[in-house]
């Protein structure tokens, strides 16, 4: 609602969604948060131009939608899909990275 996405039927997007990488406790810690941001940005840059990184944080102990996910916007759908297959199954902070690449991801941000 309120969000009109033109041509939602496209098969590829520039936004990659990464899951199972961070805990709420880590997100609440400023220093940890900055470090996670930096690590994600650095690694993703190897696969293309990183336009933006969104890491939703809990606000005042309250969960907001998307907490636990990391959204990375790439310069092109091609770069996004490269990162998608390269990062799935990698380990981040000792956790297995799950990737999800779909326009549906954008819906999680709303």
């Amino acid at each position: 609602p309120g969000l009109q996405v033109a041509g939602t039927a496209q098969e590829a997007t520039e936004v990659l969604c990464l899951m199972n990488m961070v805990s709420k406790e880590e997100l609440e810690d400023d220093e940890e948060y900055e470090g996670i941001m930096e690590d994600v940005r650095e690694e993703c840059s190897r696969y293309g131009e990183v336009v933006s990184v969104e890491i939703p944080r809990p606000v005042g102990g309250v969960d907001i939608p998307g907490v636990g996910k990391i959204f990375v916007e790439f310069g092109s759908a091609d770069q996004c899909s490269k990162a998608h297959s390269a990062l799935a199954g990698r380990k981040f902070a000792n956790r297995v990275v799950v990737t999800w690449c779909a326009m549906l991801c954008l819906a999680c941000l709303v």
Partner: peptide, 11 residues
């Protein structure tokens, strides 16, 4: 870095 080496892939 929190990333483990690229050679570590988990299935």
């Amino acid at each position: 870095s929190r990333w483990a080496s690229e050679t570590v892939r988990t299935a």
